[in-house]
Write a protein that binds this DNA or RNA. Structure first.
Lengths: 197, 197
DNA sequence: GAGAAAAGAGCACGATCGGTCACTTACTGT
DNA sequence: ACAGTAAGTGACCGATCGTGCTCTTTTCTC
């Protein structure tokens, strides 16, 4: 049973890459299988259908993302320090090997935003949980804590800057994308912390 | 020659819709043809290849977008009034019939960000021209005008809020998306205008 | 080491993909 | 009105899609 898990992991890695490049639907099972040195039918011993593989890809990408951005930050005290660490790791993520061909989560979000089904549901679930986590983090920016509405607005802007960073960097090739995002975020945190007083 | 132009336009409308839903590559010629009541081969009398149609779709979407957001605003005086009108129209666009299934420009941006070719080039060209236009508009926010760097940073945030609005509204179903985007943008304009003094 | 179960290969299927070609129908400029 | 061209059809091509099937090889368990 061990061998199977290893190939399953290789399949998911390759699939995640191809999904980021070509999209969920356009990434074909044949191409994925060939890239990991498998036959198409061999692939079906690990996933019952294409949709099952897509679901597994989404789950793995979300796991990796959380691990990448959150794990390093959770050691820090809640509030400003942790928030800034998360944001920087978030930008790092978009430039990491897992997002070599664009952040897969962004790609999935756009492709699935009006394609109902279990894959979209899973994606939504992860995004909303992430949002809840970050909103709580923003609330902890001040004492007494921010209202949920204020924190939600701050999160909206934080997420927006990540999306803007991704677009500016990848499509427009803007070398200042990271700097723009960072300065915008720091200014946001400043204002948010101050408005609590 | 008139008849042909009309069907060509119908094809492009339908194609743009399907592209927004399923993506550039997944939108098939057969489905588009059937939706406009044509045979697949009839479609080829208007476009030499799928890529040619994709290019035409991108051009038409960009034309429509500019018309939708800019035309109403250009009558206003440069600076704050015009900027706010554009931003509101931009949000309107994302909720208009042309973006019923998601903003096609956002969909194209994510799908094409690492797919070189003439379609991507055309998209880039339009986005960069739009960016130049808006940066100039931000510069005109104050007298003396803002530096290009300052204005570029402001545009980065403006575009980010649009992307954030799109994601929050469509994928997360956030009813406050528009309000969040508007308040974030107004605050941005305030700060930007003030920082010039 | 034998037997069971998992992992994978090979082939074939129906459907659909983008694209071609020969042909008919509809329109338009003069 | 008539000729010429544009618009549109239907049949078909090779390739590729996701998926099922049978069969062999590898791996794990006792």
């Amino acid at each position: 049973m061990r061998k199977g898990d290893a190939t399953r992991a290789r399949i998911l890695d390759e699939a995640a890459k191809q999904v980021a490049v070509r999209g969920l639907e356009s990434a074909s099972l044949g191409d994925v299988a060939e890239a990991v040195g498998l036959s198409k039918s061999g692939l079906f011993k690990h996933f019952d259908s294409k949709e099952a593989m897509q679901l597994a890809v989404v789950e793995q990408v979300q796991r990796r993302f959380t691990e990448f951005t959150w794990t390093a930050a959770e050691a820090l005290p809640p509030g400003r320090a942790r928030l800034e660490a998360i944001f920087e790791r978030w930008l790092d993520w978009a430039e990491s090997e897992w997002a070599e061909h664009g952040c897969p989560i962004v790609a999935l979000s756009v492709e699935l935003d009006d394609q109902p089904g279990p894959v979209r549901d899973q994606l939504q679930k992860g995004l909303m949980q992430w949002r809840r986590t970050l909103v709580r983090e923003f609330q902890a920016l001040a004492d007494p804590p921010l209202s949920e509405d204020e924190a939600a607005n701050a999160y909206f802007q934080m997420k927006s800057f990540v999306l803007g960073h991704s677009e500016a960097r990848r499509l427009l090739g803007d070398p200042n994308a990271r700097a723009s995002a960072l300065s915008a975020f720091r200014s946001l945190v400043d204002r948010t912390a101050r408005q609590a007083a």
